[in-house]
Design a protein around this nucleic acid. Structure first.
Lengths: 240, 240
DNA sequence: CGTGTTATTGAAGAACGTCAAGCGGGGTGG
DNA sequence: CCACCCCGCTTGACGTTCTTCAATAACACG
């Protein structure tokens, strides 16, 4: 398992850190590009490691860079002045971060576990888009998919019960990770992150896990491992 | 004021209805296109009126067409099997509808008041995008803006109180309609739509309106008219 | 092995939902 | 023209779900 550094509050990872060895990876993100395009791409990109708990970008800061996740898991969240937090999503390798069309970032991206990201300045990114028109289409498709997911999440947050929220979350995670019933689903994030993603408290998430275990929907391996034991009933519990 | 037809449940507006007189309008949507492009555009588009309460598209139906709103207001919503509803947004002229990158629509778009929309088949739309590359960029920008709004709404639905939700909603509406304090903000939608947008019940929305009136934040002209009387306190009530 | 952190569990409370009744405005029909 | 009705909004009383507060338990790490 990936080690995570102790880091009580999020802080910026060193912006100067590059990792030239990773510069070939963006192809995973940009998809079917020709070999010439790939070559150019690797010249403008620079990679950096992200320690668990550190922030790639922070809400409100000037939006200077765009990133793609190469490795690890990031959580995106928004904060209210009094500290209330809403996690808007979890990013996996291949996802983009920092695509704000405004002056500053509108959310924070923090690493859940250690990982790596590929960085572009906005200028680099825009030049890339001009140079590889295929990229814009892929990007549009990606953002549209995210918008659809966001709308699904709005239904969850606005209308579903705690049990339905957790069931929906677990089913979505299992599908995203290509796990079927009986196989273990890993939850890299803590209960607090799950709670803030589902619009609940840690206590409610914990209680709901327990209730589902008792009801026989699932069993927990450890804090970060879940096995769906009764897929049909979990689906039923998800509401739709 | 625009009359609304009595229509208890939504139904599809006649798909064959065209309105050739409107075919020049899409320029409002597609933005700064050259005159030659505009000409081509008007040849492929066809317009239709939408009666209040009728649905332009419905969740689950095969996604055959893409629309742009020319006039009126649409609400987008998702339904659960038991009837629970989440309104994910309100569309105003210039917005796109039906940009599903899948087989079928993932939400219903229903007219709040009578309006008009410009229709393209998916093929027409894709050909347009190939023909006018500028369109794809504008579309990306639009979808990104919507995604940002969706994330803001997730914060609202997941973490804000009823008062904060309504205050946020009203402030957003006033800003979108370019109204400042003292001016009237029109709410074309009913209380049920507001409730389903904010993840509340009509009763709670109604009570919160009353509480805000009593607290002096705002005054209501009629059911569909609101005047913000104390902007600072309303902002404070919005939470952030 | 101790300490800080995260997860679980319990009891009490608050916010919002549910149910039910009443109000009001616009449209319809007598 | 007026009465009636229908539908949407408001208001009240009561319930339920989730949160809050607090204590304990299980880890992870030094």
């Amino acid at each position: 398992m990936i080690r995570s550094e102790d880091r009580p509050v999020c802080h910026r990872s060193s912006p100067g850190h590059h990792c030239e060895g990773c510069s070939v990876r963006p192809l995973a993100v940009c998809g079917a590009l020709g070999p010439g395009e790939l070559e150019r791409l690797s010249r403008v990109s620079s990679s950096q490691r992200i320690a668990a708990g550190s922030c790639l970008i922070e809400e409100g800061e000037p939006a200077e860079c765009v990133f793609t996740v190469l490795e690890g898991i990031l959580k995106l969240y928004k904060l209210m002045p009094d500290g209330r937090r809403q996690v808007t999503g979890f990013l996996i390798p291949g996802d983009f971060v920092g695509l704000a069309f405004g002056e500053s970032y509108i959310y924070t991206a923090e690493a859940v576990v250690e990982g790596a990201a590929c960085r572009f300045t906005r200028n680099q990114f825009h030049r890339m888009m001009e140079e590889f028109p295929a990229l814009e289409g892929r990007l549009l498709s990606k953002v549209s998919t995210e918008l659809a997911a966001a709308q699904e999440q709005m239904l969850l947050l606005g209308r579903k019960t705690a049990r339905e929220r957790l069931a929906t979350f677990l089913l979505g995670l299992a599908r995203r990770m290509n796990r079927s019933a009986g196989e273990q689903v890993r939850l890299p994030m803590g209960r607090a992150d799950i709670a803030d993603f589902l619009g609940l408290t840690v206590e409610t998430v914990s209680r709901t896990f327990t209730a589902m275990r008792k009801a026989g929907y699932l069993s927990t391996v450890d804090k970060h491992g879940v096995v769906i034991t009764d897929l049909d009933r979990l689906r039923e519990a998800a509401g739709d």
